[in-house]
């Protein structure tokens, strides 16, 4: 229903808020489908960071959508035709919740039955993510890194403009005293929670991706309420930008360390004398790499959008 409302509205602000609600609803649905880690990620990414980035963009572009001159009949036709074909395609699919569906036959039983002996951590999602499918996750981390670089080059603001603009433009929410006090109380809790999610990912839902996003959310909250110049004193933009690369390098470095110790790339068994201990160490380091990259990229993204806004205000 929320999705339908999104199509009908022309106020983009409302659209973005609705899409945040939509994400939160999806997260609870994921939870119902036993995907706790996914629900966690969707709640922090979809309902948190994504909504924020959309709002940051809306600050730079007009808020209202123009009425389209074309009638959407053709588009509706195409969509319905596609839908009919897709529904026809589902008729062969296995039923919802069936335990003997082909999906559950291939590698999943091995992960569920053997991962405790081979990797030794209870959260199977983490052990697949960081160990069995380590290459895959390295690739994903690289994609995030690349997207960060892309936004960095698209929304560049020169240092001189930054310095000049900062003197003239104060932070938007300088006067929101209640928000500022509450944020000050929340901030340490958010950051500690992020670290807990980071290092407890082996035993409960969580891990580098979620922790990175939560950590970034804490920093972004601070930036929104106290302004860029104050945040710059805590964390330098240059440092954050270097950290994006550092996370990926840490991940790949663990892989290469495994090779130097005589194993395969990302084969953590050789890191310690006992294979299970090696797996523990490897997963911890790799997840840390993921967490650092994700947090740094998310913070960089927000900084870039905010700088752009500051620059525009200054130019006016």
């Amino acid at each position: 229903m929320t999705a339908i409302a999104i199509t009908r509205m022309s106020d983009l602000f409302a659209v973005v808020m609705l899409s945040g609600i939509y994400s939160l609803l999806s997260a609870s649905l994921f939870l119902d489908l036993d995907a706790v880690d996914v629900a966690f990620t969707e709640a922090s990414v979809g309902a948190g960071i994504s909504t924020l980035l959309f709002l940051a963009t809306l600050k730079l572009v007009p808020r209202y959508e123009k009425k389209s001159r074309y009638k959407p009949t053709l588009a509706l036709g195409v969509v319905i035709a596609t839908g009919a074909l897709l529904i026809y395609g589902t008729l062969d699919m296995p039923h919802f919740g069936e335990a003997d569906a082909p999906v559950h036959q291939h590698v999943a039983p091995r992960y569920l039955n053997d991962s405790m002996n081979e990797v030794g951590i209870p959260n199977v999602v983490t052990s697949i993510l960081a160990s069995y499918r380590g290459y895959d996750t390295l690739g994903e981390t690289l994609v995030i890194f690349t997207a960060g670089i892309g936004v960095l080059s698209l929304l560049m603001v020169s240092r001189r403009t930054k310095e000049k603009a900062l003197q003239k433009v104060p932070a938007d929410m300088q006067n929101q005293i209640i928000l500022r006090v509450v944020a000050k109380m929340m901030l340490p809790l958010i950051l500690i929670f992020a670290l807990y999610v980071q290092f407890h990912g082996d035993y409960g839902p969580g891990g580098g991706f979620q922790a990175g996003v939560i950590f970034a959310a804490g920093i972004i909250l601070y930036t929104m309420l106290f302004g860029l110049s104050l945040t710059q004193k805590v964390i330098k933009t240059e440092v954050v930008e270097r950290l994006t690369a550092f996370g990926v390098l840490l991940y790949a470095g663990v892989g290469i360390a495994c090779m130097l110790l005589g194993g395969n790339f990302l084969d953590y068994n050789v890191l310690r004398h006992d294979p299970v201990h090696g797996q523990h160490l490897g997963i911890l380091l790799v997840e840390l790499g993921v967490g650092i990259t994700v947090a740094a990229v998310m913070i960089t993204l927000f900084f870039k959008f905010t700088w752009r806004t500051v620059k525009h205000k200054y130019n006016q």
Partner: peptide, 26 residues
């Protein structure tokens, strides 16, 4: 237990999704 493999795939896809969306917004 439910199948953990799709969870892993989607978890990373969500984070990659936000990174590409940010790129689009830029």
């Amino acid at each position: 237990y439910s199948n953990p493999l799709p969870h892993v795939l989607i978890l990373t896809a969500i984070v990659v999704g936000i990174a590409t969306t940010a790129m689009g917004l830029a």
